[in-house]
Design a protein around this nucleic acid. Structure first.
Length: 941
RNA sequence: GCAGGGGUUACCGAGCCAGGUCAAAGGUGCGGGAUUUAGGGUCCCGUCCCGUAGGGGUUCGAGGGUUCGAAUCCCUCCCCCUGCACCA
């Protein structure tokens, strides 16, 4: 059977018949499901596929439940990556060109065509358009039930107008602010740089460190040392400076700072009014004295090689009691008198320096000294000093307490005091902030990356309490699955502060109040689900972007003003304006947003907050569901690992239904699913078995009368159908599918063993329709195929859930089967252990009095069971019976054991190949006395 | 560091939130058998240890505790994974 062609056939027919293009039907319940649109910097792979697949499975299940389902999709192109790719291709970056050729080859065979297409990618629009087009094809090829009429991409003018509207709403609520902000920046390029622009930025992230720059009085100004541990200022004994590095006199506002040349250059990008004056070698400072800011003690400036002029200010202050580097440098210098003399420093200056201990901590005396001795470090160039620093820092941070040398901060834990010390130093004008990158970084072009402070950065200010309150309220009202994410979302909302919302580069929407800025990509995709409700009408009517004014959106989304006025001012027909308003009112709110957990702290938080700010409560989103990521053979899927499988290859290499089934079944929604070839093979076998069952029954006639075994299978089927319907409805898609597919297929196997394949064909035919219906959300193509081969001319994709035929669910029949099965198991175990080859098997059922006792104690607590039983039949054997019933944990069920055994006699005999004797008088080992109700005694010869 | 998640019988992976019916689903692998089976298919049985009668023993990262009873609840410890903003 060629699954790929079956899949394509149904996908084509769904498209042709516009099966997934819902229209509003007043009075019919609707369900509006969204999955975040993918970013179009390349083609998608199976890892992305999991989320869209789960979304589609949910959409399809909701249709089965009778909802009018809208499941739209669009494409995200906002931001710098697409732009950066276009730039790289334009300048002939071979690495990028090859990567994109790989992408394009997924879809094109002709190599010259590949070349041409990739060349066209020099224009970013072309990248967006090409991959949007191909991704749509991929999605159709995955069988997703998407309404494509509503698609758009985020650089389109009509979308820009929508985003502008959103920002105007936020602005009028006072949520758009302007201020300073530090970012990573390339002075050579004159641009901010993001992760994508930095060499190895994705592997080794560059973050921004906030150093405290502490000013030590020196000559006409300050020698400025930078630190990440401002609280150690109380223990300063000297400064370190690199003797060979260049330092400059810098005018900072009305102050004079002495810092390294590199630092001075960085400072130009961090502060206004910086003037770099004359420069000098580090030796100029060596041997001189500065005043520390707390007690204004004079401390010396000493030379040290470990100082990096290209890190922070290039000046370091020394706290030998607590910093292993400082301790060791001091020790080295004390040992090497010649070194000092080279710089004209008298050794006595150094001799006098003793560590000043300012932090009390258990198990340490002088922490820096202790750790150096413990680790055997004897030289300031020892690389283990880094580790030593980490250890001391960690211990001090968690359990260290500032001692009496620390003035008003004495007695406080480091943990709690860091920022306060800095605040205090800044207040008294002795400290400032100096930003530095967390590691040395260069752009992909090899240009240096520094931290710059943007002076007029636009922010969205998430701090207003009214806004957070609304956000929390929204979160409380919505469904979260898995539920644990609700608490997390509350935490995220609390944590949100100001967020830059515009950049100078990239594709997207221009900032309404300053056209030089582009609205940043996560800020432009917060409430766009609303845009889906009208996008197809905008297209159908060819409405120009200029008509999509603030007034227009105010009416359509918020009901402000009148359609008539909007029509007059925009030139859109009043009827059409009304239609869009109706469409929005019908579909909104977004009932469920399905995505993956990485979106939680960014996109989903903004999604919630922006809805909370802009829309009335009745249009707040109703639910968020999340599935875990997909990995492959235990490893993360990534281009750099070379283990990517494009979505476009799924159909041919695996089969779409198989992929969907894997997504549904191979892991719980919230855990990681591992795409492993060995598991796929196993799943394929079982999927094929299912298909074979269908194939063998599609032409069969259902049975005319029902026997005991038939009733058993029907009971199993409808019981599982009932369970699985509930499981699915509560989003336990995995459990529902396993139950309905694998567990039930095992039932069918069992059934076939009892009745043979002919009968099985007939019986399966009887339940084929409900079975196909139920499985259709997960494996829609094969279900559609057999649905039609059964003669239906509707689409299984538009059907409703099968009826649960309660009349077939039969406890008695199932219990009787379990009874016989457990008897068989017992017999087989005896045979295995005793190694007898049986000729005759004697079964002794429990005597009536045992049943009487069983009945009597079925609802009695174990404690009172014996007493209750003894009232009925005062005998030692009664007590023994009760004890055994309790021990075996026998569950009460009324049954005529003999009748069942007589009925099943032949089957049991066939199964174990021996003659069965029921309650015969022959009982040489006196076994009957061991018989329990529902657990007969057995004797074998 | 902060936050979240996890460690289950050869492997993957359920169960644990609502403690007992859990030696612990299902699959894979492995062993045995069946099928007029010859290449991987399907079906049955077994797969922690012991056991010539359906039974017993020891397990669910380590160590404690609560309970008549814990893989499941509480505490401590060890190990692993993910996210932490201006980036889509």
């Amino acid at each position: 059977m060629n699954f790929a062609s079956i899949e394509r056939k149904w996908q084509r027919r769904w498209q042709e018949d516009r099966v997934f293009e819902p229209t509003i039907e007043e009075g019919r319940k609707k369900f509006f499901l969204t999955v975040p649109y993918p970013y179009m910097s390349g083609s998608l792979h199976i890892g992305h596929g999991r989320t869209f697949t789960m979304g589609d499975i949910i959409a399809r299940f909701k249709r089965l439940q009778g909802y009018n389902v809208l499941f739209p999709m669009a494409f995200h192109v906002t931001g710098t990556p697409v732009l950066a790719i276009a730039d790289a291709i334009r300048v002939g970056d071979q690495r990028v060109i090859n990567l994109y050729k790989e992408y394009v080859r997924i879809y094109e065979d002709d190599e010259s065509k590949v070349d041409a297409i990739v060349r066209s990618f020099a224009e970013p629009e072309n990248i967006a358009r090409y991959f949007a087009d191909k991704t749509q094809r991929d999605f159709i090829g995955m069988g997703y039930s998407i309404d494509w009429r509503r698609k758009f991409h985020t650089a389109e003018p009509i979308y820009n107008k929508f985003v502008e509207w959103q920002f105007k709403k936020l602005y009028s609520l006072g949520l758009i602010k302007k201020g300073e902000y530090p970012i990573t920046y390339s002075p050579m390029d004159g641009n901010p740089v993001g992760e994508d622009d930095i060499e190895d930025g994705d592997i080794n992230k560059v973050t921004i460190m906030e150093f405290t720059a502490i000013k030590f009085e020196f000559e006409d100004g300050y020698l400025v040392a930078a630190t990440l541990r401002p609280e150690t200022i109380f223990g300063v004994t000297n400064l370190w400076i690199h003797p060979e590095a260049t330092y400059c006199r810098v005018q900072v506002g009305n102050e004079v700072w002495y810092i390294s040349k590199e630092a001075a250059e960085k400072l130009q990008y961090q502060k206004r009014e910086i003037k770099i004056g004359e420069c000098m070698k580090g030796t100029y400072f060596v041997g001189k004295y500065v005043k520390e800011p707390v007690e204004r003690r004079d401390i010396p400036v000493l030379p040290a090689d470990f100082v990096d002029p290209d890190n922070a200010t290039g000046v370091v202050y020394s706290v030998p009691a607590h910093a292993p580097y400082d301790y060791q440098a001091l020790a080295d210098i004390k040992k090497d008198r010649n070194y000092l003399q080279k710089f004209g420093v008298t050794p006595e200056i150094v001799e006098k320096i003793e560590p000043i201990k300012i932090i009390d901590i258990e198990n340490y005396d002088i922490p820096a000294r202790d750790i150096c001795m413990k680790m055997g470090i004897t030289n300031q160039r020892d690389p283990r000093l880094e580790e030593a620093t980490q250890i001391v820092y960690k211990d001090e941070f968690y359990s260290g307490i500032l001692n009496e040398k620390c003035g008003k901060f004495a007695g406080i834990r480091i943990n709690d005091i860091k920022d306060e010390v800095r605040g205090w130093l800044m207040e008294i004008g002795r400290a400032d902030i100096f930003y530095e990158t967390s590691r040395k970084a260069v752009t992909r072009n090899g240009h240096k990356v520094i931290v710059a402070v943007i002076q007029d950065q636009w922010f969205i200010d998430y701090t207003p309490s009214w806004w957070k309150e609304r956000g929390h309220k929204l979160v409380d009202q919505m469904l979260f699955y898995p539920a644990k994410y609700r608490d997390m979302m509350h935490g995220i909302i609390d944590w949100l502060e100001k967020r830059p919302c515009a950049r100078k580069r990239g594709l997207g929407t221009r900032f309404p109040w300053n056209r030089e800025w582009i609205i940043e990509s996560l800020s432009d995709s917060t409430i766009y689900m609303a845009f889906y409700t009208i996008a197809h009408i905008i297209r159908r009517e060819n409405i120009p972007a200029e008509s999509l004014t603030e007034e227009f959106f105010d009416y359509v989304y918020l009901g402000k003003g009148t359609a008539k006025d909007v029509a007059r001012s925009t030139g859109i027909k009043e009827k059409i304006v009304e239609e869009m308003r109706r469409e929005f009112l019908y579909w909104y709110p977004n009932d469920q947003r399905h995505t993956a957990p990485p979106h939680l702290s960014n996109h989903l938080a903004f999604f919630i907050m922006h809805h909370a700010a802009i829309f009335p409560e009745k249009h707040w989103p109703r639910g968020i569901t999340l599935n875990g990521l997909m990995i492959r053979e235990g490893a993360k899927i990534s281009k750099s690992k070379g283990n990517v499988i494009p979505l476009a290859h799924v159909a041919d290499r695996y089969g779409v239904d198989l992929f969907r089934l894997y997504c549904a079944v191979n892991a719980d929604m919230d855990s990681v699913v591992d795409w492993r070839e060995s598991e796929i093979a196993a799943l394929r076998r079982r999927f094929n078995n299912f298909v074979a069952l269908m194939e063998e029954s599609v032409e069969a006639e259902p049975p005319e009368t029902l026997g005991y075994e038939d009733k058993w299978l029907l009971s199993k089927f409808y019981r599982r159908l009932k369970e699985s319907t509930n499981l699915f409805a509560s989003l336990k898609i995995r459990d529902a599918t396993i139950n309905m597919l694998f567990h039930f297929m095992n039932d069918v196997k069992e059934y076939e063993n009892m009745v043979g394949p002919e009968r099985r064909r007939k019986l399966v035919r009887m339940i084929m329709e409900p079975w196909l219906l139920f499985l259709s959300p997960v494996i829609p193509h094969i279900c559609e195929e057999y649905w039609h081969r059964l003669g239906h001319d509707t689409y299984v994709s538009l059907e409703t859930l099968p009826e649960i035929r309660e009349e077939y669910i039969d406890d008695t029949i199932e219990m009787e089967k379990e009874y016989v099965d457990s008897l068989l198991l017992d017999i087989q175990e005896i045979l295995r252990v005793s190694k007898i080859s049986p000729k005759d098997i004697y079964i002794y059922t429990a005597e009536p009095w045992k049943w009487e006792i069983f009945r009597a104690i079925k609802d009695v607590s174990p404690k009172d069971a014996v007493r209750t039983a003894m009232k009925i039949r005062k005998d030692k054997s009664t007590m023994e019976l009760v004890k055994r019933l309790l021990k075996e944990k026998m569950k009460y069920y009324e049954m005529d054991e003999v009748k069942v055994l007589e009925r099943e006699k032949e089957r049991i005999e066939k199964r174990i190949n021996a003659t069965l004797h029921i309650n015969a008088d022959y009982d040489p080992k006196n076994k009957q006395r061991y018989a329990l109700p529902l657990k007969p005694a057995i004797y074998i010869e």
